[in-house]
Every structure is written in structure tokens, then in C-alpha cells.
Design a protein around this nucleic acid. Structure first.
Lengths: 236, 236
DNA sequence: TCGGGAATGTGACGCAGACCACACCTTCTC
DNA sequence: GAGAAGGTGTGGTCTGCGTCACATTCCCGA
């Protein structure tokens, strides 16, 4: 068995995380409580697959804690990492929209605590709280913008630029306040898959940033030393 | 003045095109009629800009006829063409979701006949016809999938593969039944911007496909001669 | 605590495709 | 119908980065 069942229902801790998420905040305290009861929370270890691209999808997931990557695999087995998700992020929205299969896989990078909300229950919630549907649309809009940017980056930025931009994004979203990006479990191969490059090339680009004092690397911890220069390198 | 006003309201012809579009079909004949009355139809010449990236966006657009490209421009002026849209396609959805500025520009490639539906009116329609909101979500899902594919293609396919795949898509969406892709106004520069490549490189890739008898080119008309081989080249 | 498999750092090689430059040919415009 | 403007076909050069190959170091699990 890969995952422990969420029973007994840890309603309160789940609800308290949901309350932090803008998407669910519109539901109010009561709505959040009943939402927490309507789904199941599970824990996963590092490197586990929460769902596979191609699976039927009948739930929306909320990452209550941990770190996961969204992996898109081509027919030939090549992988691109579309996004890294952290506490409070949701995934699995896509398959809910049109009932189509999962468009990507979700793999835990660090131990994760995940809440699954069945599609039917989500639709009910949307009907009761029109604000939730609005938030959902907003989120999709954000997703479309991100993907558009990613495509433009692949087309126009060189590897070093994409890496610089990625490090800034990771620091912003998952890093500590002082520009330290410490993501245990996130390998250089993952970085490579995030920017569509080979692993050796990423290594060299990292070294190059180190040699110019834009970042420092100790083990798997990366510290951003010169944010301004990194932004410039990333075309911002 | 770039565009002629849509007055007098050509309600019937507009309604008859709207009736062809799955998104609006859920409204029924009456709903479509009243939708047609709620917006404005305009005509544009080739090469005109319907709206600019960064503009405020308060309308959903339906392309009643013609051909337009969706152009995303970076801060440095580099352009990538995100999509080619034809009769029955919609655009401008993004800015409606969250009221943010237009995320891309729309440029006519051929003369276009365009219907603009104000955001407020669309939201009303969605309230009256929940099916419309469902269709809308479905459409967004499709958009996300397309962008994901585009990112994966940029990361994994070489220029020739991306071009082959693009030609298949264009033939499928805008071409004639016999594999003839005749898109007046669509230049090799446009093709290049669609696949994130330089114009000379696209030219050479086209020549290469011609020399292998996968396509033939006469002027601006491209005929797909060997769809199976093209699919293979495009990684399908 | 130790062993082994994974992750990291580097070197060498080759080539796809960007960039520049220019000649030819079409297609609008007046 | 002539000129201008833009699109197309090709050549040459250069470099970023993929690929293969390997040594070194790290880290997790027994």
C-alpha cells in the first residue's frame, strides 16, 4: 500500500489549512468545515505518484503540505516538469472541467499531505457558493498565463536565462525570505525538466552563475546572492 | 478609423454563425438570437489589430469569419504566435475571467468579421444558462492542454518536427479536405513565430519536406502529400 | 557504520539552428 | 503599369547545448 488512509477524518487540521487558501476562503468557516468533511486526506512519501497522466480523474486535490511536481510525459517517454506545487496549491483541476483523463502526473518530491475532494462535491459547493466558481476561473486564467509564459521562455530565453528565471520563481514560491532555496529532493534533473534542458547543461549553467557570484550552492541548497542580476539574466 | 461600425445590427446573420458554435448552441435558438442582439459585429481588414496585449478587456470575441493570429509579445519585442483562429473560434476569454489586461494581441491575417459580447452580458447569459458556463470551462481546459502540448513540443521536438506537426494542425483546422493548406496572408515569418524558430530556418525546413515529397509548395499554398510521414516526423 | 546507487561535476565532440547578408521575386499601392 | 515594400530562397559563420562518457561525491538504507 502506497498511502495511509486518511481515517479517522482529521477534519480540524484539514479545515485550518483550507482556510489559508484563497480559493476556499470564499466558503466561509462553515463551508470550509463541511468541505473538509466531504473529502479524504492522505499522506504520501517522497517519490510516490499521486496520480498518473491518463488516469480517469474524479477529484480535485489540495496539497495541504509538502512538495510535488507536475510531470507531463510524451509518448516517447520524455518528461517535462510543468510546475512545482507547495502547501495550499491545488491540482487535478483539469480533468474536472471536462471529465477527460488526467493531463499530467503528480509525483511527490517531499513527503506530502494531500486532500482529495470528489468532483460531485465540488460542483455542489460551486452551486451553493458562486464565488467559488469565480475563484476557480481566476485560477485557470492564472494557469493559462503561466503556460503562455513558459512557452515564450522556451522560445526566446537561452538555458541560462530560463534557469535564472526558474530560481527566482522557486525562491519566491517555495524559498525562504532571504533568497535561500532549499528544496530537499529537488535534483538537478528536476531543474532540467523544468526548463526543458539536459541535466549536464543545467549543472554547467549553475556553475556559471556561481562563478559570477549570482548564486551560491552548498549541497542541495541554493542561495540567491544577486537578485537584480538574476532578474536581468532571466529577461525581467 | 480602422473598423466600420457594426450598425445596423445584422442580427440574423450573426445568429446563424453563432448557432454553428458548440459554445453557444446550449443557449437554444432564442438565446442565440438575444445574444446576437447583445453584442456588436465589426469587420476588419488584413493586418489590423483587434486588441493589444495589455489593453483592458471587457468583451468576449467571436470570430464570425476570417482568420486571426494570437500574438504574445515579450518585453523585448520578440513575438510568438500562440494560435491561429478561424470561423467560429472565440478569443479574449482570458481577460474576462479575472478582469486582468489582455494577455495577448489579436491580429487579423485575413479580413475578419468579429462579434464582441460585453462581459456583463456574458455573465448574465451564464447565470441563465448554466450549460454555457460548463462549455466555457471545457474550452479553457482545452486551451490549457494545447498550451501544455506547445511547451512540450518546444522542449522535445526539433524544428522540422514542430513544423510538420504545425502543418498537420493547420490542415486539420483551417485547410481543405484534401490536405491543401492555402492560407493567404500567412507568411513564413508567421509559421516561424508559431513554432518558435527563425524565418530562414523555417524556409529550409519546408524545402527539406518538399525534397522528401512530404509536402508541395506553390506560392503560399502548401499541400500535404504524405500525412503519415508528417505525423511521424511530428512525433505522433 | 558501511556499502552501493544515485546525484553531481567535467571533458570532448558534433550539429542544429540562430544570426547576418544578400539576391530574386511577388504583391500591393498609387 | 511602374515603383516600392515586403516575402522568399540560400549561403556562410558561429555557438549553445545535446549526447556520450567518466570520475567523484553524496546520501540513504540495511
Amino acid at each position: 500500500m502506497n498511502a495511509r488512509s486518511g481515517l479517522p477524518p482529521e477534519v480540524e487540521p484539514v479545515a485550518s489549512v483550507l482556510a489559508e487558501i484563497p480559493l476556499f476562503r470564499v466558503l466561509g468557516a462553515d463551508g470550509i468545515r463541511s468541505t473538509a468533511r466531504a473529502g479524504v486526506a492522505r499522506r504520501y512519501r517522497s517519490g510516490q505518484i499521486i496520480f498518473h497522466q491518463g488516469d480517469p480523474g474524479e477529484s480535485l486535490f489540495v496539497l495541504l503540505d509538502g512538495l510535488v511536481k507536475v510531470v507531463f510525459t510524451t509518448e516517447h517517454g520524455d518528461e517535462i516538469v510543468l510546475n512545482m506545487l507547495g502547501r495550499g496549491d491545488t491540482f487535478g483541476e483539469m480533468a474536472l472541467l471536462d471529465g477527460s483523463p488526467r493531463s499530467a502526473s503528480i509525483v511527490t518530491v517531499r513527503p506530502a499531505w494531500v486532500f482529495a475532494l470528489p468532483r460531485a462535491r465540488l460542483l455542489e459547493l460551486m452551486r451553493e457558493h458562486p464565488g467559488l466558481a469565480d475563484e476557480f476561473l481566476r485560477m485557470l486564467g492564472h494557469m493559462v498565463r503561466r503556460l503562455t509564459d513558459q512557452a515564450a521562455d522556451l522560445a526566446f530565453l537561452d538555458l541560462g536565462g530560463r534557469l535564472a528565471k526558474l530560481l527566482l520563481q522557486l525562491a519566491d514560491k517555495h524559498g525562504q525570505a532571504d533568497g535561500v532555496v532549499d528544496l530537499p529532493g529537488l535534483t538537478q534533473s528536476d531543474l532540467a525538466a523544468l526548463i526543458g534542458a539536459s541535466r549536464p547543461a543545467v549543472n554547467r549553467a549553475l556553475q556559471s552563475l556561481v562563478s559570477r557570484n549570482l548564486i551560491s550552492v552548498q549541497g542541495r541548497t541554493i542561495t540567491l546572492l544577486d537578485v537584480a542580476a538574476l532578474r536581468k539574466r532571466g529577461g525581467l
